[in-house]
Computed example of a mutant assay.
Amino acid sequence: MLAVLLAATALQGCTPAPGQQPGTTATASASPTPDSPLTAELNQFRDNYSKQIIEIQLSNTTSAPVTVLAAELASPMFPPGSAWQAAPGGTEIPPNQTKSLPARLRDPSCHAPAEASADRASDEPTAAAEVHVSFRQGSATLDQRLPAADPFGVLARNYAELCLAKAAARVAVIGLAPGLEIAADARTAVVRLTVTPREAAAGTPERLSIERIEGTTLLAEPPETPWPRGVVVVAGGAAAEYRLRIRPARCDAHAVAEDKVGTLLPLLVDVGGKKGTLKIAAGAALKGQIYGFVTAACGAH
């Protein structure tokens, strides 16, 4: 598997509706099912970008509390089972407020690029998503299907990234080796990108191209030691290790304290004609070392 962090975080809380300022009254962003007190919207917190965890955001549009007992995503992009793990007794949404319910996406059933329709811009399913929700209000317990607004394209982005990762994994295992090599002056360091091709199957070996490696909110490429470009990886080929010298991309006071995605290294790849960004996550120990390096390097300036 690719070195992608998959630890789940079961967080939930009352929040203003997406895009609102704290303390304002929540308003629904999707038309409710007739007679439904709830509307649904999909979002994803930045610290869950590499974890396949999205937020089912349910808004209570009435003046009475609603207790949500279950919520599950229904989308042609993902098989059934992308559901919020409810606590016993569910969770209450106060009047005119929104609650975010985390749900881990199931692995998508991806189509090979050749299977995409020639007149389609992409091979992503396009039908609208729904949320199947069970809730209690007053003495009534109801099961309803709510249209789920997705204003930020959360499902399409996750579908594309996960399918690209699955395609790349058929060619090679790509990851970041543990251990950070820090230069004597503490201003730069080296991370090691490892590429281990899979065994070649019968027929033409599958291949991918790492067109370039991009920086992150924390890490940048030193101009004098550029990162490799145009790396071709072929199933059945030899393993390789690429030493990437890094420097801090920013040194403001909040760079490390507020980091969410700074240790996810983006690789722009082409896998059999499917192009996109493959995000390679640092393991827990390496992540901590990177944070320590950025803090020390910024302090040395």
Score class of each variant (00 low, 15 high):
residue 3 A to V: 10
residue 10 A to Q: 12
residue 10 A to S: 07
residue 12 Q to I: 00
residue 16 P to T: 04
residue 18 P to F: 02
residue 19 G to K: 02
residue 19 G to F: 05
residue 23 G to N: 10
residue 27 T to A: 04
residue 28 A to Y: 00
residue 30 A to G: 12
residue 32 P to I: 02
residue 33 T to S: 00
residue 36 S to L: 03
residue 39 T to Q: 00
residue 42 L to M: 09
residue 44 Q to D: 01
residue 47 D to N: 13
residue 53 I to C: 01
residue 60 N to D: 12
residue 67 T to M: 11
residue 67 T to W: 07
residue 69 L to M: 14
residue 74 A to Y: 06
residue 80 P to W: 03
residue 84 W to L: 02
residue 84 W to K: 00
residue 98 T to G: 08
residue 102 P to D: 01
residue 104 R to H: 00
residue 111 H to M: 13
residue 113 P to C: 15
residue 119 D to V: 15
residue 123 D to P: 09
residue 127 A to H: 03
residue 132 H to E: 08
residue 134 S to W: 02
residue 137 Q to K: 07
residue 138 G to S: 12
residue 140 A to I: 15
residue 146 L to E: 05
residue 155 L to Y: 10
residue 160 A to R: 13
residue 161 E to Y: 05
residue 163 C to A: 08
residue 168 A to D: 08
residue 174 I to P: 11
residue 178 P to W: 03
residue 179 G to I: 07
residue 187 R to L: 12
residue 194 T to R: 15
residue 194 T to K: 12
residue 202 A to I: 04
residue 207 R to A: 14
residue 209 S to P: 00
residue 211 E to L: 14
residue 214 E to Q: 11
residue 219 L to Y: 07
residue 225 T to V: 15
residue 229 R to W: 03
residue 230 G to I: 12
residue 233 V to R: 13
residue 234 V to A: 06
residue 236 G to V: 13
residue 246 I to M: 04
residue 249 A to Y: 05
residue 252 D to Q: 06
residue 254 H to S: 09
residue 255 A to N: 02
residue 256 V to T: 13
residue 256 V to N: 03
residue 257 A to N: 10
residue 262 G to K: 01
residue 265 L to T: 05
residue 271 V to F: 08
residue 273 G to T: 10
residue 274 K to R: 15
residue 278 L to A: 05
residue 281 A to R: 01
residue 284 A to Y: 06
residue 292 G to A: 15
residue 296 A to N: 12
residue 299 G to R: 09
